[in-house]
Design a protein around this nucleic acid. Structure first.
Lengths: 123, 123
DNA sequence: ATGCTATTGATAACTTATTATCAATAGCAC
DNA sequence: GTGCTATTGATAATAAGTTATCAATAGCAT
């Protein structure tokens, strides 16, 4: 990541303006608006570099390819719309004391994923 | 699933006695104790049939192959041990009212996955 | 016990996501 | 503007999990 290319700028712009985790396909399609020649290979390469550099984080859902979003410090979880397949960030607080396991298990972290209809699809 | 074979009995026995979701590898390895010739192809075929018949359910974790457990009616969630990679069922109750999303989102279901050290690995 | 055929075991083929390859292109220091 | 070389685009290759193929085997009805 030594040079400042149109492709990299486009990819980081797409991710930072999305406000939700994007798949490599979504990044590719949206990025082509500003760089029509953008290759899926470049998306994968750049995403990999951005993760390594700590700018973005992978969002993993069961049975699905990774999505990516800007690295944030506040913890949050995710909502996947069953209709449009888009994933949204949920910033509502959840009390960790409600996440229970048997007393002899030590909880280090958790993943909470909600599924349902997003505001645009629920009609 | 017309005939009652040693392989199918072994596979269903392994899953029903495990008490936790098993990967196809775990089913294969454990099943070989009773049917040494058991093929991984038979494991996949039988698991597929058992899911279709409603006897077992797939348990999906982010970035991992499906595991399988007996179909149960009570809802529960899962705990994955970061050390031994085994997944356990957690039957502690969680109040759904604590799972929040923006008011214009409709929640249909959720997945909660805890990660940490199981009782055997926490030492 | 026999015969039909569902099932099995071994392995090739496939799938989907991701990475590697390499000639052509384009940042950027000069 | 030049030249060096990092980066790109197109595509082949890879990886891991799962499914298909097919001859050999083994349930089970008779």
């Amino acid at each position: 990541m030594e040079r400042n290319t149109r492709q990299r700028n486009a990819i980081l712009d797409v991710i930072s303006e999305a406000g939700r985790p994007l798949s490599t396909q979504e990044i590719h399609e949206t990025g082509r608006a500003s760089v029509p020649s953008l290759s899926i290979a470049t998306v994968y390469r750049t995403v990999k570099d951005l993760v390594a550099a700590g700018w973005i984080l992978p969002v993993r859902l069961p049975g699905e390819a990774d999505r990516y979003e800007m690295a944030r410090l506040d913890d949050h979880y995710h909502f996947k719309c069953s209709s449009c397949s888009r994933v949204f960030d949920i910033h509502e607080r959840i009390k960790k004391s409600h996440l229970l396991a048997p007393r002899d298990f030590v909880i280090e972290k958790y993943d909470l994923i909600l599924y349902g209809q997003c505001s645009e699809c629920r009609h």
